[in-house]
Protein backbone atom coordinates (compact mmCIF):
# COMPACT_ATOMS: atom_id res chain seq x y z
CA UNK A 1 0.00 0.00 0.00
CA UNK A 2 2.96 2.30 0.52
CA UNK A 3 3.59 2.99 -3.15
CA UNK A 4 4.68 6.55 -3.79
CA UNK A 5 2.61 7.05 -6.95
CA UNK A 6 -0.63 6.02 -5.31
CA UNK A 7 -3.20 8.78 -6.00
CA UNK A 8 -4.68 10.78 -3.18
CA UNK A 9 -7.51 8.87 -1.54
CA UNK A 10 -10.90 9.75 -2.92
CA UNK A 11 -13.20 11.48 -0.45
CA UNK A 12 -14.99 8.96 1.68
CA UNK A 13 -18.78 9.17 2.06
CA UNK A 14 -19.68 11.08 5.19
CA UNK A 15 -22.94 9.21 5.52
CA UNK A 16 -24.56 6.22 3.95
CA UNK A 17 -27.84 6.85 2.17
CA UNK A 18 -29.55 3.48 2.51
CA UNK A 19 -31.98 4.30 -0.28
CA UNK A 20 -29.31 5.11 -2.86
CA UNK A 21 -27.43 1.86 -2.23
CA UNK A 22 -28.55 -1.18 -4.16
CA UNK A 23 -29.05 -3.67 -1.35
CA UNK A 24 -28.02 -7.28 -1.98
CA UNK A 25 -30.77 -9.87 -1.50
CA UNK A 26 -29.45 -11.16 1.87
CA UNK A 27 -29.55 -7.56 3.16
CA UNK A 28 -33.20 -7.24 2.11
CA UNK A 29 -34.00 -10.58 3.77
CA UNK A 30 -32.22 -9.36 6.90
CA UNK A 31 -34.08 -6.07 7.23
CA UNK A 32 -37.42 -7.79 6.48
CA UNK A 33 -36.58 -10.24 9.27
CA UNK A 34 -36.32 -7.28 11.63
CA UNK A 35 -39.42 -5.51 10.30
CA UNK A 36 -41.54 -8.67 10.45
CA UNK A 37 -40.29 -9.32 14.00
CA UNK A 38 -41.21 -5.80 15.10
CA UNK A 39 -44.66 -6.22 13.52
CA UNK A 40 -45.19 -9.52 15.33
CA UNK A 41 -44.22 -7.92 18.63
CA UNK A 42 -46.37 -4.81 18.17
CA UNK A 43 -49.49 -6.42 16.67
CA UNK A 44 -49.09 -10.20 16.49
CA UNK A 45 -48.64 -11.10 20.16
CA UNK A 46 -51.46 -8.91 21.58
CA UNK A 47 -53.85 -10.05 18.83
CA UNK A 48 -52.90 -13.68 19.44
CA UNK A 49 -53.60 -13.33 23.17
CA UNK A 50 -56.86 -11.53 22.49
CA UNK A 51 -57.86 -14.27 20.06
CA UNK A 52 -57.13 -17.13 22.47
CA UNK A 53 -58.95 -15.42 25.34
CA UNK A 54 -62.00 -14.46 23.28
CA UNK A 55 -62.27 -17.81 21.50
CA UNK A 56 -62.17 -19.83 24.73
CA UNK A 57 -64.62 -17.65 26.66
CA UNK A 58 -67.87 -18.95 25.14
CA UNK A 59 -69.37 -20.18 21.84
CA UNK A 60 -70.32 -16.55 21.12
CA UNK A 61 -66.77 -15.49 21.93
CA UNK A 62 -65.45 -18.14 19.57
CA UNK A 63 -67.65 -16.75 16.81
CA UNK A 64 -66.53 -13.19 17.64
CA UNK A 65 -62.87 -14.22 17.59
CA UNK A 66 -63.39 -15.87 14.20
CA UNK A 67 -65.22 -12.81 12.81
CA UNK A 68 -62.01 -11.13 11.51
CA UNK A 69 -61.60 -14.13 9.22
CA UNK A 70 -64.69 -12.98 7.29
CA UNK A 71 -64.22 -9.21 6.76
CA UNK A 72 -61.92 -7.81 4.08
CA UNK A 73 -59.90 -5.65 6.49
CA UNK A 74 -59.54 -8.55 8.92
CA UNK A 75 -58.48 -10.89 6.14
CA UNK A 76 -55.82 -8.46 4.92
CA UNK A 77 -54.55 -7.93 8.48
CA UNK A 78 -54.44 -11.69 9.05
CA UNK A 79 -52.67 -12.22 5.74
CA UNK A 80 -50.00 -9.64 6.60
CA UNK A 81 -49.46 -11.16 10.05
CA UNK A 82 -49.43 -14.71 8.67
CA UNK A 83 -46.84 -13.67 6.12
CA UNK A 84 -44.79 -11.93 8.84
CA UNK A 85 -44.90 -15.08 11.00
CA UNK A 86 -44.01 -17.49 8.18
CA UNK A 87 -41.35 -15.17 6.81
CA UNK A 88 -39.79 -14.56 10.22
CA UNK A 89 -39.76 -18.31 10.92
CA UNK A 90 -38.18 -19.21 7.56
CA UNK A 91 -35.59 -16.43 7.80
CA UNK A 92 -34.85 -17.68 11.32
CA UNK A 93 -34.31 -21.25 10.09
CA UNK A 94 -31.95 -19.85 7.46
CA UNK A 95 -30.12 -18.07 10.27
CA UNK A 96 -29.80 -21.32 12.23
CA UNK A 97 -28.32 -23.00 9.15
CA UNK A 98 -25.85 -20.13 8.73
CA UNK A 99 -24.91 -20.48 12.42
CA UNK A 100 -24.06 -24.12 11.73
CA UNK A 101 -21.94 -22.92 8.78
CA UNK A 102 -24.40 -24.44 6.32
CA UNK A 103 -24.67 -22.37 3.15
CA UNK A 104 -22.42 -19.67 4.49
CA UNK A 105 -20.61 -18.95 1.21
CA UNK A 106 -21.82 -16.03 -0.87
CA UNK A 107 -23.71 -17.89 -3.59
CA UNK A 108 -25.59 -20.37 -1.34
CA UNK A 109 -26.38 -17.52 1.06
CA UNK A 110 -27.90 -15.55 -1.82
CA UNK A 111 -29.84 -18.57 -3.00
CA UNK A 112 -31.23 -19.35 0.46
CA UNK A 113 -32.25 -15.69 0.86
CA UNK A 114 -34.22 -16.00 -2.38
CA UNK A 115 -35.76 -19.29 -1.18
CA UNK A 116 -36.92 -17.63 2.06
CA UNK A 117 -38.56 -14.76 0.16
CA UNK A 118 -40.22 -16.92 -2.50
CA UNK A 119 -41.36 -19.64 -0.08
CA UNK A 120 -42.87 -17.11 2.35
CA UNK A 121 -44.79 -15.49 -0.53
CA UNK A 122 -46.01 -18.89 -1.77
CA UNK A 123 -47.25 -19.84 1.72
CA UNK A 124 -48.87 -16.41 2.06
CA UNK A 125 -50.64 -17.07 -1.27
CA UNK A 126 -51.95 -20.39 0.08
CA UNK A 127 -53.18 -18.56 3.19
CA UNK A 128 -54.83 -15.95 0.96
CA UNK A 129 -56.60 -18.64 -1.08
CA UNK A 130 -57.80 -20.29 2.15
CA UNK A 131 -59.05 -16.94 3.50
CA UNK A 132 -60.93 -15.90 0.33
Amino acid sequence: MATADRPVARPRPVYLDLFSIRQPLPAIVSILHRISGALLFLAGIPLLLWFVQRSLASPEGFAAAMAPFTGVVGKIALLVLAWAYVYHLLAGLRHLALDLHVGIRLQPARSSAAVVLVLSILIALIVAVRLW
Binding site: R34, G37, A38, F41, I45
Partner: peptide
Protein backbone atom coordinates in the same frame (compact mmCIF):
# COMPACT_ATOMS: atom_id res chain seq x y z
CA UNK B 1 -37.58 -14.22 22.00
CA UNK B 2 -39.42 -10.92 21.55
CA UNK B 3 -37.41 -9.35 24.36
CA UNK B 4 -34.04 -10.23 22.79
CA UNK B 5 -35.22 -9.00 19.39
CA UNK B 6 -36.84 -5.77 20.56
CA UNK B 7 -33.86 -5.02 22.78
CA UNK B 8 -31.55 -5.40 19.78
CA UNK B 9 -33.74 -3.04 17.78
Amino acid sequence: HAWVGVRNI
